[in-house]
Design a protein around this nucleic acid. Structure first.
Length: 275
DNA sequence: AAAGCTCGCAACCGCGCCGCC
DNA sequence: TGGCGGCGCGGTTGCGAGCTT
């Protein structure tokens, strides 16, 4: 691939290759889509530069590849990401970082481009609002502590299921697990603020008490989490106390940014599609 | 009503890896 | 073994639609 030979023309929608062969760029037309779809249905994918020529498309091979993979491929899912998918993205991103294609492999029908866009538009927006860096430990910690828990809670409300947590991977379960038990004074903790091991924080008297079985079931009792003693004995944090204090959680210093104050309340807590 | 702004997403770019010759 | 081309990936850009002022 001789990049030096490719020169952008003045036109937004085309550029020249070797001064003679003009390539189209910009939005794809219906006709181009049809050409590409028809060619691939007859001849299959691969050899994208050759494919582009043979199909009569004045596009770069990679452009054809992207159009097919991100838009035309029959099994592509369109529309909003479900809470489950969002949760999975958060989980996998925490594990692999910006390995979008790897993350996409675990979301059938979703493309790396779509996931990348989701992360950049939704997640990074929250980071900006929090005056933080989406890759910073602080922000990832906040996601882990609040966003993912809240998302689980949201899923739980929409699809009440005793097996909710077991529908998440073990990675998610353990990922969310080490978060401190958080509850506002006077408000009972939601199921997802409770922890396997059946313990719940009572902020009124700052004590830990056992959950009734009905609630235990919602938190995934009966699955493998039941045996997870990892949660037992975790420190409990009171939200208002955290707001007052300069606290460090799990080694991340949380005082530099207003992670627990107005910003968090107005952004992460307020994400429309979640609650 | 219209101008300016913001957001979401399709598409492009540049780079690195790999296989082939 | 070095050059070349194909491919895939992550980062970035640009545009249209919707929203705000």
């Amino acid at each position: 691939m001789n990049k030096a030979r490719i020169s952008k023309s003045r036109s937004r929608n085309s550029y020249e290759l070797g001064g003679t062969y003009e390539l189209r760029r910009g939005p794809w037309t219906l006709e181009e889509d049809n050409l590409l779809t028809h060619y691939i249905s007859c001849n299959g994918e691969g050899q994208w530069n050759l494919l582009a020529k043979c199909a009569g498309l004045k596009r770069k091979g990679n452009s054809c590849r992207l159009r097919w993979l991100n838009y035309l491929k029959p099994d592509i899912k369109r529309g909003n990401l479900s809470p489950h998918e969002q949760l999975l993205i958060l989980e996998l991103h925490s594990k692999w970082g910006n390995r979008w294609s790897k993350i996409a492999q675990h979301l059938p029908g979703r493309t790396d481009n779509e996931i990348k866009n989701y992360w950049r538009t939704r997640v990074q927006k929250q980071a900006r609002k929090l005056k933080g860096d989406s890759n910073s430990n602080n922000f990832l910690e906040a996601i882990r502590m609040f966003w993912m828990q809240k998302m689980l809670e949201n899923i739980e409300q929409k699809i009440p299921s005793p097996a909710l947590l077991s529908s998440c991977s073990m990675e998610t379960q353990s990922f969310i697990g080490p978060s401190p038990v958080i509850s506002y004074q006077g408000l009972p903790p939601s199921p997802c603020q409770t922890k396997p091991g059946n313990m719940v924080h009572n902020s009124d008297n700052n004590s830990i008490s056992e959950l009734p079985e009905s609630v235990t079931n919602l938190t995934g009792g009966g699955n493998s989490l039941e045996d997870n003693s990892y949660y037992v004995g975790l420190p409990s944090y009171d939200m208002q106390e955290l707001e007052r204090q300069d606290v460090s959680v799990s080694g991340s210093h949380m005082a530099d940014v207003d992670w627990f104050g107005e910003d968090l309340g107005g952004t992460i807590w307020g994400i429309d599609e979640l609650w």
